[in-house]
Each structure stands twice: as structure tokens, then as C-alpha cells.
């Protein structure tokens, strides 16, 4: 097998996996702060996609400001969802499971009714390809990769060095302890939920020009995100990044040898393998 093909396959896998890492980071952030799994997380990805579609294709704005607006808009949607629904479900895993499934259907059906069922193309702001020998990546995907890496870095900095980011991590480690140190749990949770949703929205906005938007578009990335965080360890940010890179490698290389249906199974096989060896994931807390 020529080496270029192998490099191309790895590049294919990584480019998308990095975007799915954004979705996974949002999911795991919300899980660690509120102790719940938001199954409607993919729908915030979808909202980010549609916000981008409206900005670029309908209102004719430039892609970059649109993307920033879309991230903000989805963050606000997250604030609303947290205030109305998830605030009351802190730590109630089963209730949150049922309610978030309900929210998934509401948002998806709502999108179908409002936006229509057909795929909507989003014009790309970047054209052309970058070629290194026989290895090719489109400028569009290259920008997506850069943006995803940038956002991951910004999130890391935010959690590491900002006051609010530290408060989020404190709440994630010990909500009662954090409250006794004067951390406002309600506000911190709301902000954490919003940041988590905004990350999904950013991923949706980044991939909107690459894949077009449609109401069920959130299903695939959220499945990938689950694979990533189970492999990387629930609640762990470095774990999510590592999980994403592993998934990209496995799917990229796997696609050279297996059919696309089989490649989708590879991710789940990876989950099973990791869980057998390390039930809490690679970076999960005990």
C-alpha cells in the first residue's frame, strides 16, 4: 500500500475527529458539572448548523462573523435550556436521560417543521485544495481543523486560567465544597451548560459548509462524541482529545480495509476494547 494513501486516510480521519472532539468536550463538560448526560446535545450541533445557514445563505453575511454569531446564539439556547429544564435535573441521571431524549425529538421535529426536511447547502467561504505530493486536503477542511484546534486551546485556557473556568472545574470536582467556598453553583452550572452547547454549535457551524445542514444532522456527531468520551473517560478533557485522535486513527486507517458500514462498527469495537481493559476510560476518574 502506498504511503500517500495511508497519510491521506489518517488526514481524513483526523480532520473530522477534531470537530467531533468539540462536540465531545461540550458533552463531557456538561456531564462533569451537572452530572447528567444530555442526549439532545447533537441538536445544539444542528442549531449551530442552521444558524450558520441562515447567516450565510439567507442573510448573505460573511462566514467568519456568522460562525461567531452562531456560537453565541447556540450558547444562549443552552442558557434557556438550562434555566427551563436541566437546572432541575442536576444529578438525576435517569430523569435527565428521559427529558433530554424528549428535547431531542422536540428540537429535531421543530427543525423539520420550521426549516423543512431537505438538506440545505451552505456556501463555503474557502475554496481550493492544498496538495503535498499525492496527499490532498481542501482549504475548507484545513480551516475547519485550524478552527477546531483553536477552540480546543481557547477552552483549555478558559478552564485553566479564568476565574469562571476554575469555578466550573471546582463544581465538577465537588459541588458542595465549591458552594462552601462561595462559588455560585447555579450561575456556574448555567454558564457551563451554555459553554458546552456553544461548543456543539461551533462544531455544527464549522461543518455546515462541508456537509450541508438538515434536521437529523446531529445524530452522527453525537454518536462519535459518545465514543470519544467513553474511550477518553467521562469528564476528562485531555481524555476527550486523546479519544478523538484515537477514533480518527482507527476510522481513517480502517476505511482503507473495510466497507463504510464496517468502519462505523470499528468505533464501537474500540469502546468495547477500552472498557474491557480500563472500565473508566483512558483518563476517567475512578
Amino acid at each position: 500500500m502506498p504511503i500517500e494513501l495511508l497519510v491521506q486516510a489518517l488526514l481524513n480521519g483526523f480532520a473530522l475527529a477534531l470537530v467531533y472532539v468539540l462536540v465531545a468536550l461540550g458533552l463531557t463538560l456538561i456531564f462533569s458539572i451537572l452530572g447528567i448526560i444530555n442526549f439532545a446535545h447533537g441538536e445544539f450541533y444542528m442549531l449551530g448548523g442552521y444558524a450558520t445557514y441562515f447567516g450565510v445563505a439567507v442573510f448573505g453575511l460573511h462566514y467568519v462573523p456568522t460562525l461567531l454569531l452562531a456560537i453565541g446564539a447556540v450558547g444562549l439556547a443552552g442558557v434557556v435550556a438550562e434555566r427551563l429544564i436541566f437546572r432541575h435535573l442536576r444529578g438525576k441521571t435517569l430523569n435527565a436521560f428521559i427529558v433530554s431524549l424528549g428535547l431531542l425529538w422536540v428540537l429535531q421535529s421543530g427543525a423539520q417543521l420550521t426549516f423543512g426536511v431537505l438538506d440545505k447547502p451552505v456556501p463555503s467561504a474557502f475554496s481550493g485544495i492544498i496538495r503535498a505530493g499525492r496527499v490532498i486536503i481542501s482549504v475548507e477542511r484545513f480551516v475547519v481543523v485550524l478552527a477546531a484546534v483553536g477552540l480546543i486551546a481557547v477552552l483549555y485556557g478558559f478552564l485553566q486560567w479564568s476565574r469562571v473556568g476554575r469555578a466550573m472545574r471546582a463544581v465538577a470536582q465537588d459541588p458542595d465544597g465549591a458552594a462552601l467556598q462561595g462559588v455560585n453553583i447555579e450561575f456556574t452550572s448555567m454558564l457551563g451548560f451554555a459553554v458546552g452547547c456553544a461548543l456543539a454549535g461551533a462544531a455544527g457551524g464549522l461543518l455546515a459548509p462541508v456537509f450541508a445542514v438538515s434536521p437529523p444532522m446531529g445524530a452522527l456527531p453525537v454518536v462519535k462524541a459518545f465514543i470519544i468520551i467513553i474511550v477518553g473517560g467521562m469528564g476528562s478533557l485531555p481524555g476527550a482529545v486523546l479519544g478523538g485522535l484515537l477514533l480518527g486513527t482507527v476510522e481513517g486507517i480502517g476505511s482503507l480495509f473495510f466497507s463504510s458500514a464496517a468502519v462505523n462498527v470499528l468505533g464501537f469495537l474500540m469502546v468495547i476494547a477500552v472498557l474491557l481493559v480500563r472500565p473508566r476510560g483512558l483518563f476517567g476518574a475512578a
Binding site: 491521506q8 466497507s259 462505523n264
Partner: peptide, 16 residues
Amino acid sequence: ETYERGTKDFYPILTK
């Protein structure tokens, strides 16, 4: 080649 309905990323198949 065949692919799963709902696939969005065809880079892997197309590379082949």
C-alpha cells in the same frame, strides 16, 4: 463501493 445511508464524509471511500 457502497456506503451507509446518512453518511456525510465520503473522503475515506473516495480515497480508495
